[in-house]
Simulated assay, not measured.
Amino acid sequence: MLGVDPGLTRCGLGVVDGGLGRTVTCVAVDVVRTPAEDDVAARLLRISGAVEEWLDTYRPDAVAVERVFSQHNVRTVMGTAQAGGVVALGAARRGLPVVFHTPSEVKASVTGSGRADKAQVTGMVTRLLNLAEKPSPADAADALALAICHLWREPMRARLAEAEARAAELARTHRKRLAEAARRKGGSGTAGTRGVRR
């Protein structure tokens, strides 16, 4: 599982493997940096190249990206969204599913609280992955947290989607049977009045 904390200046990348139960292992983690003075297109190209290399090297089953929320700094939001789009495009080219998780989802999954701060997330990621030292900067820890979040939430999400699909199929079957019963009832009523003389 590849987790990505998108950003133009720093883009966190973290690959995590899931084991039995909620066991998780860190495979790789890094942060792609781009100079602020460079052209936006050049910065996105650099991020794209790094992501493509990670996708080819580690071959994840899916990619988890942090969902962008509006902030006071519109320029920062735009850059983050653009970086996230580059990541999603690279994954889509390889037929990989891309899932966007909100920051509160990630925090709740990793720490148990959707309002946890950066230090708490980093601390829990370090413990869960049994790392010798804390991932730094925070973008690296966030990328690992995204991967962990997806590994833990996806089975539940898949079961929910399966249950919803079953419920929808049952509802369609029920509506079809009701429609057929109504047609039969209407048809028999019509047939019964044909032979009546007035």
Rank of each mutant, 00 (worst) to 15 (best):
T57Q: 05
G49I: 05
D61C: 02
M78C: 03
K176N: 13
T34A: 12
V106D: 03
A182E: 12
G195C: 11
L128A: 13
A62Y: 04
V65A: 02
K176A: 15
G85H: 04
P103G: 03
G12S: 11
P135C: 09
Y58T: 02
L20M: 08
T23I: 04
A116V: 06
H150V: 01
P137A: 11
L160M: 02
V74C: 04
Q120G: 11
T9M: 01
G187Q: 08
G189M: 15
A81E: 11
D39G: 13
E169N: 14
L20K: 12
G186Q: 01
R198W: 10
D5I: 06
E53F: 12
A165L: 04
K118P: 11
A141T: 12
R198P: 09
V24M: 02
A140M: 10
V4F: 06
T34Q: 14
A181N: 13
A64H: 04
N73E: 00
A116K: 08
R75T: 00
A138C: 06
R43T: 07
E164W: 05
D30K: 07
V77Q: 02
K134Y: 04
G14I: 03
A64W: 01
L131R: 15
V106Q: 03
L89C: 15
R22L: 13
A28P: 01
K185L: 14
R59F: 01
A108D: 07
A50E: 13
V65Y: 01
M124E: 01
T23H: 11
G195H: 14
A91F: 14
H174M: 07
R157W: 05
A62V: 08
V63I: 08
T34S: 13
A167N: 10
S104F: 07
A182T: 08
T9D: 08
R46L: 07
V31L: 13
V125I: 11
V16D: 01
T57R: 12
S113G: 09
G49T: 06
T57V: 03
V74T: 14
S48H: 11
V77Y: 00
V121I: 09
L89I: 15
E105I: 03
A83L: 04
